[in-house]
Design a binder for these strands. Structure first.
Lengths: 217, 217, 217, 217
DNA sequence: AATGAATGAGGTTTCATTCAT
DNA sequence: CATGAATGAAACCTCATTCAT
């Protein structure tokens, strides 16, 4: 959805623009994000942004798409129906945690999709995005069940959904202030270590263990 | 956080203001919500809103607090450390589903807390809100474990967290367009019945069953 | 088309706003006219203009309507089917000339309706405006013919049109630079007296005489 | 006023640029006309326009001059002091009508000269343009009067002016929406046939007849 | 000479908040 | 206390013009 102009830009300028937009959209939210500030942060003129994208909406959409594609590649990239589901789950949570640590702003863009007034973006981005994981993981679960690698009689859709929920709440959500507060409500002893990711890592490891126990035959 | 003026208002006017604000904040989001439109929808003058609340922020905060208190009362209200945890979980999911169906806008206000630019509201509202359930449910789990009513050796914090997550994703989240899209990715056959709550109810019932199986000794 | 807010304004503020808008629209044209400058000239805040009118378009439309109504009242006001057509024509040209001298900006607004990009305004204003004179004058001509007061066998529509054209080119048009240049092409000896209206008055008197000769039986 | 660059361009590119500019200036008006869109419509780069002309103003001026020269050649071209004034008038109205039908955009450019904010263009174009006809026609009238071919004692300037006015309002003006609305006010029965030129042609024929009657001795 | 990306001033419109009535 | 007009700071977007390639 960028104009050709943007596509033909030198890579580094593209990166600067997307980076600035990601950062500002993620911290201010779509409405409070100022295109002029994005331009300034990217080191280009305000008008140039509009040479690259039709509207602020378009810019937001594209920034999301690019960010979430990177996320998908890094996190779900290796998922194949014939793969080992236990390895897969472990990889997914670890890769997700790494991605979230390195690109918290991108992850925030995803979280914003659930907010009021963002429906148009959710509509444009979410269907493909969410189906990507759902379809693959359901296939993987089905194939694993058929081969007797996991507990028989499992509800494939529900299981895939629950695992993804765990992923969302443990890996994705913690980039937001609100979810960190939630976590603190359950593990108040970690209050001091807000910026310490060991708590996160530990929780993730335990969640992965829990899933393994739940899945194994 | 309203001014005294608001407190001393006739009940019905208070209700009108809070209702209008809830509806407009929930559908437009905080930034796009127009104080003038809220006033108009409430049938009061724009200036009156500022007789009742210091700022738009304050109004938002109070609307959230009132809404979420109602939510809490209705959903978690009966939770006591000595109660039956199985009944409690069942009640919580059912009451939550009913509340969400009857007050989707209030639930949306809660969801918005996770968005970019809403940190100040999360900060003000979430700690008490989240602890309310976390503390009580952890106590209930602890007491139940001590009395041998649930499977021994359970990780209390993690279990409470997971159950709350399930609640969030199955009961709370579906009020948002984005989450409905997510659900459709896992249960695409329900595509036609987007507005049909039978799917929701069924998922919730199964989730409650799942929790029971997980908890029972 | 103004909002109620404008209608309920003190007369003098209404006058100031309409006056400023007329002046600036007339001198700069719709596109180059800056709402901020209109506000400033009217001594109100920029935002206030938008309390009074939905859009710049609406403001323009209303300014035209008010101005042209005044024009109509002053120039065509006394026209009645049973009146004396010779007196009527004389009055019309004299009153028109006076109005144009006293309110050149209003007259310019009318001239602008013929320009590219102004179709939407022409569409909204012209039909009623033009029919007002056309209908009345055709009725007057018809009645006069029936009573034998004017030359028989006259083409009523064409005659009304031609008289109105004369009015337009001699009375209305001279407020524009372009038409003054046209006039100079036909009466170059008056070059010195660009701001002198004696030339205008003289032409108008002669035109009225010409019409009388043409009409009289 | 184009740069040499433009003059040395292949004919067809010149034609494309002038055609595109004419079309867009005429439909959008000077201010709303976008140089980029003109370039695109002409199939040249935006920057190239500025290789051809100093400014947008210059482009507009030149487009007008070229268009109006064509108009003049086609309509007034054959006018000579010794010619037959009756033939001349008939030719002028017919040729004008044909030109307006074939080049309405060019004619619109002329009409725009009377608008607010276009004075600088009127100043540059109109004096020569208007004098061209005025001088020649006055000479023709004078010569005809001297030779006794037309009614004696005629007011040459006023007559030339009135004939030109008729030409303007019947031949030139109908390219504008506003003037078509005016026409409809006088001949409402033609409402259905807005795009039908028979009404125009008929009116023009009658006007020519009227002029002949007026002029003939 | 041709191209089209870059620029930034400028313009319309919105809206939280104030304040006189 | 209610009202709603007034305010002006932003914010999105446009576009004439420049300039490096």
């Amino acid at each position: 959805m960028p104009k050709d102009t943007f596509i033909q830009l030198p890579q580094d300028k593209q990166v600067r623009v997307l980076g600035a937009a990601t950062q500002i959209f993620a911290s201010a939210g779509f409405d409070r994000a100022d295109v002029a500030r994005i331009a300034q942060a990217a080191g280009v003129a305000k008008g140039s942004i509009y040479n690259y994208f039709e509207t602020k909406d378009d810019l937001y959409l594209y920034v999301c798409q690019v960010g979430l594609k990177a996320f998908r590649d890094q996190v779900y990239g290796t998922m194949e129906p014939g793969g080992d589901i236990f390895l897969m789950v472990a990889h997914m949570f670890q890769a997700g945690a790494r991605f979230a640590k390195e690109n918290p702003d991108t992850v925030r863009l995803y979280l914003n999709l659930s907010s009021a007034g963002m429906d148009r973006f959710a509509e444009a981005i979410a269907p493909e995005m969410e189906s990507f994981f759902a379809d693959r993981f359901k296939a993987l679960l089905g194939e694993s069940a058929r081969r007797g690698l996991i507990r028989p009689g499992i509800d494939v859709s529900m299981t895939a959904f629950l695992i993804n929920n765990l992923f969302m709440t443990l890996v994705v959500a913690p980039v937001s202030r609100h979810h960190r507060i939630r976590l603190r409500a359950y593990w108040p002893e970690e209050e001091k270590a807000m910026d310490d990711d060991r708590g996160d890592d530990d929780r993730i490891r335990r969640a992965v263990g829990l899933i393994h126990n739940f899945l194994k035959p």
